[in-house]
Amino acid sequence: MDEFAEMSVFGSGVSQETTSTGDQQIPSLSGYVAYLSLVLQLIMTMVIFLMAGWVFITIKATRSLHKPHDIFVANLMITGMILVIFQTAVTIDYVIGVDLLSCKARQFFFSPIVEVHFTYLMISFDKVIGVAFPYKHKRIMTPRAVASIIIITWALAISLSVDTLLNDYDSL
């Protein structure tokens, strides 16, 4: 008769139901899904790093791509790379079953997500200025203005996460 038991795989916190048939134990599908998720996350991380890094290096190395739109795209690529690192860390944290990161520390991971939204807003803003003021666009969107906008949006995104990290909203 088959018995179901909780089993920890390789000392990890991912528990699997196993079916015991004599001396042979067969892990159920739920345990494999966690490891498959980790493998897919690691593959996705490598692909994103390769592609985003390639775009970033191309923009940095090609002088003709040093336009506001392309600088914002480079910022988006860097943000994507940071975000995928955080997502991979959370997946590894789940698979090994050890809480390496507190819930408050995980809240900090929302800053790249907020920055992605700010970057889309910046790209839209740049395009609106380009369409509304085609002859003034270069004077408005100077390299200093673009760098300032990127710095301000990163500061805003991080400050929103730091506020959550430092304050205890659960006690309200």
Rank of each mutant, 00 (worst) to 15 (best):
E6D: 14
Y120W: 11
R63E: 14
K136G: 02
S148F: 15
L165C: 10
P27M: 02
P112L: 12
G80D: 10
Q41C: 12
V131F: 14
L121D: 10
T62S: 13
D93M: 08
A132V: 11
M81E: 14
S30H: 09
T79R: 01
A157N: 02
C103D: 12
T164D: 00
I129V: 11
F109T: 10
G97A: 08
C103P: 10
I151M: 09
Q41T: 15
I59Q: 09
V98K: 14
L160E: 04
Q87R: 13
C103R: 10
A155V: 12
S159R: 05
T79D: 02
M46S: 14
G97W: 06
T19D: 05
K136V: 07
P134W: 08
L65N: 00
Q87N: 05
M44K: 08
R144T: 15
K60Q: 14
M81R: 13
M46I: 14
I92S: 07
I96V: 09
S124Y: 15
L172Q: 12
F86K: 00
K67G: 10
G97T: 01
A52M: 15
V146Y: 05
R63Y: 08
A34D: 12
M7D: 04
V33Q: 13
F86M: 07
L29P: 03
T79S: 06
S102C: 00
Q107F: 10
H137I: 07
Y120K: 01
E115W: 00
P143K: 07
S8A: 06
L83M: 15
E115R: 08
V98L: 13
G31A: 03
E115D: 12
H117V: 13
S64M: 07
F56A: 15
